[in-house]
Amino acid sequence: MRIAVYGAGQMGAAHVRHFSVLPDTTIAGVADADERRARSAAAAVGATPCPDLDSLLALRPDAVVIVVPNIHHAAAAIAALERGVHVFCEKPMATTVQDARAVLRAVERTRRIYQLGFNRRFAPVYTGLREILAGGVGVFSGTMKMNDGDMRTPVWFSDPKISGGFMYDTAIHLLDLVRWLLGPVQEVRCLTRSSCYPDQDDAVMLLRFHSGALVAFTTCGHATWTGPLERLELFGDHAALVTEGFERLTYTPARDQPAVTRDFAAFPVPERLGYAQETRVFTESVARNQAGGPTAEDAFRAVEFVDACYRSAAGDGAPVRLVPYQLDS
């Protein structure tokens, strides 16, 4: 399978490494507006450096990995899909619901595989958490946090005209994750402020799920890099599930039972963070021509969720009900 990588920054170079080690997979080309970065990433795996997406797609890859600034994700994905190329795209799918819907329609029209880079769905700490929940543990309430130490890398991170906004770049990971764990969200209330950067780099949310569960979520972009940078605490009938970063999962099944902790710190980083698993799932999906990872609809729902958060924030925390947009409208 021939893979092309569009974007050779930090994450682009990481995806070059992750895909290049898969069996029966080669990196055909790497494109970046920075010619030096494209050459460096391509040389590491014997690929062809390219200056732009058109020249990259001219190499006739089976699939393209999109790792450019957020504002360009939708147009790049549609261009690749229309040329019959399968797409793995880093989050977000798009920075507006309208653009996300356009990508979704392109996926439906071309019948190509589209997978979004929600790596947490593959990380052992979170797959382990989901397995426990699937065993019948009911969740009544919870808290979660996800922080960035700063918003200086990449250079466009704090510019909402490029990133779409802080929640499209960082918080979207846990917003997708909590939907995956607890089911559809019924209502969101969100407050934001600009604290250290031009963007709204602090957000506090209250989420109400269709199940009745209530979850509070805080996220900021100026927390320093002291871990854990993300943490979930979910509470049931005298039961608790707690994650600490990607490293630990602790489950207390009942009031009079001891806590059980699973530690993933010794796992190799690509496996611990879910990157190795998501790349394998994508290539297997392409080989079978059957979606297996976070799909285009999952990606669309995540954009819809972030959009609802920003609409609530614009109304000073007014409740916004998530009445899903009709995908075929």
Rank of each mutant, 00 (worst) to 15 (best):
A265H: 08
Y251Q: 00
E271P: 03
A302C: 14
E187K: 12
R280L: 12
P184T: 07
R179Q: 15
L232E: 09
R288C: 10
A299Q: 08
M167C: 10
E233D: 14
G183F: 02
Y168V: 07
L207W: 14
P184F: 03
L232K: 05
A302Q: 11
H210C: 14
E230Q: 15
A296W: 03
D176M: 10
G292H: 05
E230R: 10
T295K: 01
H238M: 11
R189V: 06
A216Y: 13
V269D: 14
H210N: 12
V281D: 10
D201N: 01
G274M: 01
Q257F: 06
E271C: 04
R262L: 07
A296L: 05
A213S: 07
Y168I: 07
D237S: 12
E271R: 11
Q200A: 15
A287E: 14
H210S: 08
G293D: 02
G236S: 09
T192H: 09
A296K: 02
R272E: 02
T219N: 08
A213M: 07
E297I: 11
R280D: 09
S211T: 11
E187G: 08
T218F: 10
R193W: 11
F282Y: 03
P228A: 01
E284H: 11
S211E: 03
R189H: 08
G292I: 06
G236F: 02
T261E: 02
T279A: 14
V303M: 07
D298V: 06
E247D: 15
A223P: 00
P228F: 00
A296H: 04
F209C: 08
T170N: 15
T283M: 15
V303T: 09
F282H: 03
E297P: 04
A287K: 12
P294C: 08
T226W: 07
C196L: 13
E187P: 08
G292W: 05
E230P: 06
Q186F: 12
A171T: 15
E247M: 09
D169P: 01
T261V: 02
V260G: 00
A223C: 02
A296V: 04
P228V: 00
A240D: 07
G227W: 01
V215G: 07
F166D: 04
D169T: 15
F246D: 01
E244P: 04
L206E: 15
A299P: 06
M167Q: 12
M205D: 06
E271A: 11
A259Y: 00
P268M: 07
A259L: 00
R301D: 07
A259N: 01
P294W: 03
E284T: 13
E297V: 13
V188W: 03
E233N: 12
H222M: 00
P294V: 05
Y168T: 06
V178E: 13
H210R: 15
T261Q: 01
T219K: 02
A266T: 09
R179M: 13
A265G: 11
F267T: 00
T192G: 10
T283C: 14
Y168K: 05
E233G: 13
P294R: 02
F209Y: 12
L241T: 05
M167K: 09
C220V: 04
A299N: 07
R231W: 09
T250D: 00
E244D: 14
G236W: 04
P268E: 03
V215T: 09
E284M: 11
G274L: 01
D256Q: 10
